[in-house]
Every structure is written in structure tokens, then in C-alpha cells.
Design a protein around this nucleic acid. Structure first.
Lengths: 155, 155
DNA sequence: GCTTGACTTAAAGTTAACTTCAACTTTTAT
DNA sequence: ATAAAAGTTGAAGTTAACTTTAAGTCAAGC
């Protein structure tokens, strides 16, 4: 894909103002300042102290939004972003590596939800009065369960 | 299954104290009072004003916890619980109907997560600078997209 | 060169879902 | 009968993720 031109992205290489980035990423400027305060993003300043963003920040912010929609906290996201190279703009491979991390996490969460989906009726409707001991609510302790398949422990 | 006996459940038909319920459901007593305040659960009172719970409350609370793990807010859960019969203890069918509601919701959320999982690398790594226009982030507006399969809108 | 819109900061406010605290009152066990 | 454990209430505190507000500063267009 050759170089692209868009309405909210200024000429190649130019820095963006906070509201340009905000519009571009569909996020509030207050959220951008907040993210910066939390160390998730950064910017340079004009002589008059206004923020200016490198265009690569747009991707970074997009990634933050995807990660959030996966249910990650800003703290977790910040930790992941911290693994990106500080001194150069992240490459596609850098981003891929990051996404692989989340892919695995996501996979597990999907599996848990599928278990929940498939047993929701059985679990809610069954005589199982204590979810504390129900496999569905405790996917971690697989020790007790012998064999596969759903299992709702009755008292 | 015949009648059961457990350490935290008193004789059949007896009312439970708040800490018995708390232990049984693996939840804090403060949370139970909070739920009652929000109308999710209820109890009777002793002459001395202490709460006593009908054993069916245990299932109700378990359902609240499952629903929470599905990502529903207490408000949404309260709305669902409000559809249960007020004057009698909910039957298995009542609970089944409720779980069916959540099953469908869960199914959609799983599908969205799967899309996200399958395209995470592509989306994050691709030239798509604006998730605002990326199908992945906007599963709602399927209008623009013709045909199936992943789609990351490049600028 | 001046007005207007965009920006800046720090601090306080917001919502969800609880927890903690303080000051009492009930129950239960001995 | 009484001491300790358990329960009650209302109010304030907590965390996440922001938003809103106030009081001012910067940048851009005419």
C-alpha cells in the first residue's frame, strides 16, 4: 500500500495537535491527557507548551482501545506497551509480538465464556446451590474433576 | 438426588443468617447488604432486626455472580431478576428462561471476541490507522461491509 | 494586533461496585 | 447473667477510568 492521505492526518511527518488526534482516534482530549499522565502515550511540546503528537501515536492509541475492549486494564496495557522499543517507532513486528500476547489471553477468555454459555442453563437450573464448588465458576482448580465434560457438583 | 445436608446449610426450611449465606456463596456480608440495598436480593428480619435469608436466596446470589462474570452490571442483573415471580420461589423453568436470555447475549460477545482474536494481529499490525473506521472495532455497522470475512479498512 | 477558538493545569466530580469505620444492638455460649 | 461473637446503620473511603470546571495561556485568521 502506497502512502495515504486523510483529512485528519496532516502532511507526512507533521505533528498533530491533541484535537486532531482525538478526532482521529474517536476519543476525548481529556482521555488523551489522562493517558499521558498514566504513561501510556507521550508527546512533544511547542514553545508555548502545547502538545504535539507524532503520527505513530495514532496506532498506539488504537491499540490501547482494542486492548481495552478485550477487558485489559490501563495498567496492564501500560505494561505491555512498555515492552515496545522506546527509542524508535515500533515496527509492524513489534506490534505483532504484542498482539500475540493478547491473542493467547483472549483465547482463554473465550474458552471460559464458551463453557459458561454451554452450561449456563444447567448450572443455573440445577440443584447446585453453591457456585463456590461449581467447576463453572472455578475453572482454575481442575484437580477435583476426573474426566471431561461439564460438571456441576451437587451437594 | 435425595435431600442433601451440608455444613453451611441448616435444617431444611430453616432461615440462614447473613454470614451463613456469605460463606455459602463466597461473598462478603457487606456485599449482601449492598445487593439488598440495590434491590437484587431480600430477606426477612428477626424481632431484633437481624436479616434472615430463605435458602432459595443462595441460588439467586449464585446467579448474580454468574451474571457478573458474564460482564453484566448489577443494574442489568437486577432488571433480569425482576422478571422472576415475586410471590413464589422461582422454579427451575424460571431460572432456565433467565439463563436463555443471557445465553444469547453471551453468544454474541463470544463471536465478537473471536473476530477480535482472529484479526488482532492483522489489525494491530496493518496500516489501518483509524480503528474508528475498522470493522473490528465497529461490529454494529455492518452496512458498509459487503461479503463475509475479516476486513480492515485501510485509509 | 486583536479576537476567537484551541490548549494548559490542577483539582474536584462521577459511576460502579463495594469495603471500611464508628457506634450500637442482638445472639449465643458458658 | 454476662461476655464475646455476630449483626445493624449511615456515612465516608476506594479503585478505575475518565470528565468537568476554573482560571488562565497560545495560536490563527482577518
Amino acid at each position: 500500500m502506497p502512502n495515504q492521505s486523510s483529512s485528519t492526518l496532516p502532511n507526512d511527518g507533521a505533528l498533530m495537535t491533541i484535537s486532531e488526534v482525538a478526532q482521529r482516534c474517536d476519543i476525548a482530549t481529556s482521555a488523551l491527557r489522562f493517558y499521558e499522565q498514566r504513561g501510556l502515550i507521550f508527546s512533544t511540546r511547542t514553545s508555548g507548551n502545547q502538545r504535539r503528537y507524532h503520527s505513530s501515536m495514532v496506532r498506539r492509541i488504537s491499540v490501547i482501545k482494542v486492548a481495552q475492549s478485550l477487558g485489559l486494564s490501563l495498567e496492564q496495557i501500560a505494561a505491555a506497551l512498555a515492552t515496545l522499543p522506546k527509542q524508535r517507532t515500533p515496527t509492524q513486528e513489534d506490534w505483532q509480538r504484542l498482539s500475540q500476547l493478547w491473542h493467547d489471553d483472549l483465547q482463554q477468555r473465550i474458552e471460559q465464556m464458551q463453557r459458561l454459555r454451554d452450561n449456563l442453563g444447567g448450572c443455573i437450573g440445577c440443584g447446585c446451590l453453591s457456585l463456590k464448588r461449581c467447576q463453572l465458576m472455578n475453572p482454575d482448580d481442575s484437580a477435583a474433576g476426573a474426566g471431561a465434560g461439564p460438571r456441576y457438583l451437587l451437594d
